[in-house]
């Protein structure tokens, strides 16, 4: 993990939301931090380059920009690589994690319409011969305020 000074940490902790919708948002951040606008931009560029900031911008609610579901499969360990490759090749799949459970493959399928999501799930079932659990979102309880980073 890269070494982060106190300004870097504040950039990561305190600016996960409420980026001002005004012409010079980084200048507004700079005012709060007591540094210059150019330094805010340079630090964000460095943190992005180091990979600790994935991006600066809007976080979209995935389920509202179209249809999506969380899918799970119980894949025999010897077939995991093959099945993961097959799944990852679908452009509609945007996350795919191996997890520690009998259902060991968990991925998100997103598409503009539900029938396209269904078609991808059916196709994966047909091509692998493995059942796919379809777990679409029913309710979202979370109020997303960003992630509570702990510095120690």
């Amino acid at each position: 993990m890269p070494i982060l000074d106190s300004i870097d940490r504040r950039l990561l902790s305190e600016f996960q939301r409420d980026l001002p919708l005004e012409p010079r948002p980084y200048a507004a951040m700079a005012d709060r931090l007591g540094i210059g606008e150019a330094e805010v931009i340079a630090r964000l560029a460095r943190l992005s380059g180091q990979g600790v900031v994935s991006r600066v911008g809007p976080v979209f609610a995935a389920n509202r920009a179209g249809c999506s579901t969380l899918a799970a499969m119980a894949v025999p360990p010897e077939r995991l690589e093959e099945v993961a490759c097959l799944i990852n090749a679908y452009p509609q799949v945007n996350h795919n994690y191996e997890r520690s459970h009998h259902f060991n493959l968990w991925f998100v399928v997103a598409a503009p319409r539900r029938d396209e999501v269904d078609a991808v799930l059916d196709d994966i079932r047909d091509r692998t011969g493995i059942e796919v659990l379809d777990l679409p979102l029913v309710a979202d309880y979370h109020i997303d305020l960003g992630f509570d980073l702990q510095w120690n």
């Binding site: 993990m1 890269p2 950039l11 990561l12 600016f15 996960q16 939301r17 409420d18 980026l19 919708l21 005004e22 964000l44 943190l47 180091q50 990979g51 600790v52 900031v53 994935s54 991006r55 600066v56 911008g57 809007p58 976080v59 979209f60 609610a61 509202r64 920009a65 997303d144 305020l145 960003g146 992630f147 980073l149």
Partner: peptide
């Protein structure tokens, strides 16, 4: 652009706008 981003935040399409940390890169 700013008005539409504000509206998308109000309607919930946008959850927040800001720096998005990478949990993995931060350990």
């Amino acid at each position: 652009v700013m008005e539409r981003l504000a509206r998308m935040q109000r309607t919930g399409l946008i959850r927040r706008i800001g720096a998005v940390p990478d949990h993995y890169a931060l350990g």
